[in-house]
């Protein structure tokens, strides 16, 4: 193939340089959008799992006036456990020990050897059976009726708001990706068409030598592929520091809420493929555009 040696097209054609710049920009935005979208997806699923699979119940160890509640705490714990165990859909109820409490509070308080000295509530970790329907409001009412001191964590409510917001952001990034694909398509179609107009004498010559439309289209498409690939790789490389900065901002130790906002290995492979997918997309679009245009020629 001629591709082994030189391109049929002038090397410094403005339209193809424009394509390189455009794909660089597109891939830069696409990588950021996709990484953001994937991280959000992971975060939403993680939050969803945490909502559906467990529940935390706090039993205060001090009164609102700051007085220790003494034996009432243990009574409330026992009563709550007994009540919860009778509720269908509750799989397991366990009281967090000092070590577990210490681990839980580590991101905020650091490693604290004597966690029991702190005025922290006793925490009951409740595992729920996801196969059974479960009304959070019913449970809350029942517990507050039987054990008025307990506080059922309402994180479910604000987390669901957070999930809705995350989903909206996710939809927005999907829309941005769609716009990027659309813009890239138009860019490739424009550059291919303008290149064809400029290269009409070469095309005519190739036709006269017996070149098939597919041969000519392949030459153009491959040239576009190389241009798009070079632009894509630059765009990809430019996006990496931004991703790194963002990942340090969502440090799981400092921001436990975003602990799962990282990509899986499979997702990383997908992100790595973006420059090549973009270049391949440019190749296919250019090939089809040129083929269609050539079909109208003599």
């Amino acid at each position: 193939m001629i591709l082994k040696s030189k391109s049929l097209l002038p090397v410094r054609e403005h339209a193809s340089l424009f394509l390189s710049w455009m794909t660089m920009l597109m891939v830069f935005i696409a990588v950021l959008s996709l990484v953001g979208s994937m991280a959000l997806t992971n975060l939403i699923s993680s939050w969803n799992r945490s909502i559906s699979g467990s529940l935390t119940i706090q039993i205060p160890t001090y009164t609102q006036q700051g007085e220790p509640r003494g034996d009432a705490v243990q009574q409330d714990i026992q009563k709550t456990i007994t009540l919860l165990q009778q509720i269908p859909g509750v799989k397991n109820v366990s009281l967090l020990n000092d070590k577990q409490m210490s681990e839980l509070m580590a991101p905020w308080l650091g490693v604290h050897e004597k966690i029991s000295d702190l005025p922290l509530p006793a925490l009951l970790d409740v595992s729920l059976d996801s196969t059974q329907s479960f009304l959070f409001s019913d449970l809350k009412s029942l517990l507050q009726e039987q054990v008025p001191a307990v506080q059922v964590d309402s994180h479910r409510v604000w987390l669901s708001h957070l999930i809705e917001t995350a989903k909206a952001i996710q939809n927005m990034t999907s829309f941005i990706l769609f716009l990027l694909i659309l813009t890239t398509s138009f860019t490739v179609i424009y550059t291919s068409s303008s290149s064809l107009a400029l290269q009409a004498p070469v095309i005519k010559l190739l036709h006269m030598m017996g070149a098939r439309d597919s041969f000519i289209a392949f030459q153009y498409a491959f040239f576009n592929f190389l241009r798009a690939l070079s632009g894509s790789l630059v765009g990809f490389i430019l996006a990496l520091p931004i991703i790194w900065i963002a990942s340090t901002l969502f440090n799981p130790v400092q921001e436990p809420l975003f602990a799962t906002a990282h990509l899986t290995h499979q997702q990383m492979y997908v992100v790595l493929c973006i420059p090549f997918i973009a270049a391949l997309f440019a190749f296919i679009t250019a090939f089809l555009t040129v083929l269609k245009t050539l079909g109208r020629m003599v």
Binding site: I2, S5, K6, S7, L8, P10, G210
Partner: peptide, 16 residues
């Protein structure tokens, strides 16, 4: 074709 050298210009019909 200005973007092709002598060899590639002559080789064009064979490559086609």
């Amino acid at each position: 074709i200005s973007s092709l050298n002598t060899f590639d210009n002559v080789a064009l019909p064979l490559r086609i």
